[in-house]
């Protein structure tokens, strides 16, 4: 990891608890991301995922440590880091265009109305909401609202996008479509993205790297799992990749059992050197006991010919 675009350096979050005691959600958390990478964080509720994201966004301050983005320690929020909120957080008294234009005019204060509108329109078109510009959020479906949220985040051309379970409130079909959109947009624009999710398949489909966090309080970043699936993976044939189930099982094993027992299992865990897991690569062990099945099926299309995904 030579190019550290984002570097979280030893952050901790503590809250004053009952009777003068302090509750430590997590401490000594180190994490880094290169530019243009899509990273997902998976962990159970209460492990501090959202707090990490809020610290990255600047909405929350760490009790200890620092976060460096693009060579600069962050303090507070920034237009360089756009957030897509779980609850879409659209301003209900503004139209679709008004919501996106609000972000655009916040970034470029000197732009005139026409320029702001044209710029906002570009991003509304990008997320496929052309024709709904003058609707209010209350007239939109959940998926459309989240599209507006994505358009708003993208419209300020941020250096990175932060997503807090952006699709968890959507139905499966809409979620799939939006995942495709987000993936397409991130690949096209080379966006660095940090996303929290509970959905293992979503992480496998979208992420280049998956961060696994143990249960809180006292949560730690246990492993960084490199996604072995090719960059041009498609939703339809994702599950046919020979390493798909190995990856999926590894993550699910972690969530089901190892996220609870990790601290006891690995007393010498060094939070500064979190093991990187390369699923299925010879010579590198998978940390879980569940070894991936020997690969019998090797007719994964993309290994022999270009991806057939549409």
């Amino acid at each position: 990891m030579t190019d550290k675009f984002v570097s979280i350096e030893g952050i901790a979050k503590r809250y004053p608890g009952a009777g003068g005691a302090t509750t430590t959600v997590f401490e000594n958390l180190w994490l880094s991301m290169p530019r243009g990478e899509f990273c997902c964080v998976i962990g159970h509720s209460g492990c501090g995922k959202t707090t990490v994201l809020n610290i990255l966004a600047g909405l929350d301050a760490p009790s200890e440590g620092a976060v460096i983005v693009d060579g600069q320690a962050i303090s507070g929020t920034s237009l360089d880091r756009a957030v897509i909120f779980q609850s879409h957080a659209l301003l209900p008294w503004r139209t679709v265009l008004g919501n996106v234009a609000y972000a655009v005019s916040s970034k470029w204060r000197s732009w005139d109305r026409a320029k702001v509108k044209a710029h906002a329109q570009t991003f509304i078109d990008l997320v496929g909401l052309t024709g709904s510009e003058h609707k209010r959020p209350s007239e939109l479906s959940g998926g459309m609202k989240q599209r507006v949220g994505i358009a708003r985040a993208l419209s300020i051309t941020p250096k990175m996008m932060l997503m807090d379970e952006p699709f968890s409130a959507l139905d499966a079909l809409t979620r799939g479509t939006l995942q495709d959109e987000v993936r397409r947009i991130c690949l096209e624009t080379g966006q660095t993205a940090f996303m929290i999710t509970h959905d293992v398949d979503e992480a496998i489909y979208l992420a280049d790297k998956i961060f696994l966090m143990t249960n809180g309080p006292g949560a730690v970043l246990a492993e960084v799992v490199e996604n072995p699936l090719p960059k041009d993976r498609g939703r339809t044939d994702l599950h046919r990749h020979p390493l798909y189930y190995a990856l999926r099982n590894h993550i699910i094993d972690f969530l089901v059992t190892r996220s609870k027992t990790f601290a006891a299992e690995k007393p010498g865990h060094d939070p500064r050197n979190v093991p990187v897991v390369h699923i299925g690569k010879p010579g590198l062990t998978v940390a879980s006991d569940a070894k991936p099945e020997p690969l019998k099926e090797t007719s994964w299309p993309s290994l022999s010919r270009p991806s057939t995904s549409s």
């Binding site: 600047g58 909405l59 929020t77 237009l79 957030v83 957080a89 301003l91």
Partner: peptide, 14 residues
């Protein structure tokens, strides 16, 4: 006022 709306304004450096 909902915290999320305030947060939107904060992330946009308003």
């Amino acid at each position: 006022v909902r915290k999320e709306w305030i947060n939107v304004a904060r992330t946009l450096e308003v």
